[in-house]
Amino acid sequence: MTRVVFLLAPRAYLLDIAGAADVFLAARSLGLPYELAYFAEEPDVPTAEGLPVRASTRVPALGRDDILVVPGGAGFTPGVAPAMRRGLDLLRVHHSAGGLVASVCAGTVALAEAGLLDGRRCTTHHDLQDDLAVRYPATTVVRDVLYVVDGRVASSAGMASGIDLALHLVATAHGPGVAGRIARSLVVYARRNGQQPVTGLLRHRNHLSDLVHRVQDLIETRFAEPLRLSSLARELGCSERTVTRHFVDAVGMTPLRYQHTLRLAHAEHLLADGSTLEEAARSAGFADSRSLRSLRKSKEPQHQ
């Protein structure tokens, strides 16, 4: 079980909390082992929108696989992480124990105040980027991206970008197909990031064919396995010709090409997070690293 614990500060933004939380909640509804929890210095947390929320004041027990998330809020400015003394200590302890820490929007300030951004790359809301760079000169602030992952420290830009970061974390752990299903359930399409492969596949979900969505669900669940068109058609109760025709019309490629695209996206996620070419190829279902290398090369832009 992976616990995702949100560290709440006074005047937290509701969207900063709910956007990322809903991604992990949707993952749990798909049977993935996620548990959500909320921690604050005081049990009643006023939000920027005026709607109070309640959180636990008991410091949670965390393991290496758990995630600490700091949503941003109106009280965060470079140099100021409001009423988060125990929260900052928890960030330091969890990270030093090998855990992942993350922030949404202005919550990046808390990571900086905890000393976790020295020598690392990060991002935050564009209104805070200049001040953040001046206040924490040992940190490299990356602009014009939705999120940045540097080792076990992740940060995202504006409020809604917490959704993109959470989708990336789920895709890295469970594959882009799972992230695609979650994005579809949240009605989020074509989320991309300038720095890393995220969920570019989501653009292939921007159609209204229920049959094709069902085919995509089947492929995404077993993309690393050998799949036959005849098996897909049999599970859907229709002909191979019908599956192929509807799939090409909606997605612009055959089911087999879509499976290869999923495999490549999953492998790119793993490579971006430090896996070797052989490890990424094996996990994504390629016969060997040469097959993955060949497919990656075929996707490179050709210069005249």
Rank of each mutant, 00 (worst) to 15 (best):
F223G: 01
F223P: 00
F223E: 02
A224P: 01
A224V: 07
A224E: 09
A224G: 01
A224F: 13
A224N: 08
P226A: 09
P226R: 05
P226I: 12
L227T: 15
L227I: 15
L227S: 03
R228P: 00
R228T: 12
L229A: 11
L229R: 12
L229F: 11
S231A: 15
S231R: 08
L232K: 09
A233F: 13
A233L: 10
A233Y: 12
A233G: 04
A233H: 09
R234Y: 06
E235Y: 04
L236G: 04
G237P: 02
C238F: 02
S239D: 04
S239H: 07
S239L: 04
S239I: 10
E240V: 06
E240Q: 13
E240N: 05
R241E: 14
T242P: 00
V243G: 01
V243I: 15
T244N: 08
R245H: 11
R245F: 08
H246V: 01
H246Y: 12
F247Q: 10
F247K: 00
V248G: 02
V248E: 14
D249W: 02
D249Q: 12
D249Y: 03
V251F: 12
V251S: 14
M253H: 05
M253I: 09
T254R: 15
T254M: 04
T254Q: 08
T254S: 15
P255W: 01
L256G: 02
R257D: 13
R257L: 06
Y258W: 07
Y258G: 04
Y258P: 02
Q259N: 06
Q259S: 04
Q259C: 03
H260N: 06
H260R: 14
H260A: 13
H260T: 09
T261L: 14
L262Y: 01
L262H: 00
R263Y: 06
R263W: 03
R263A: 06
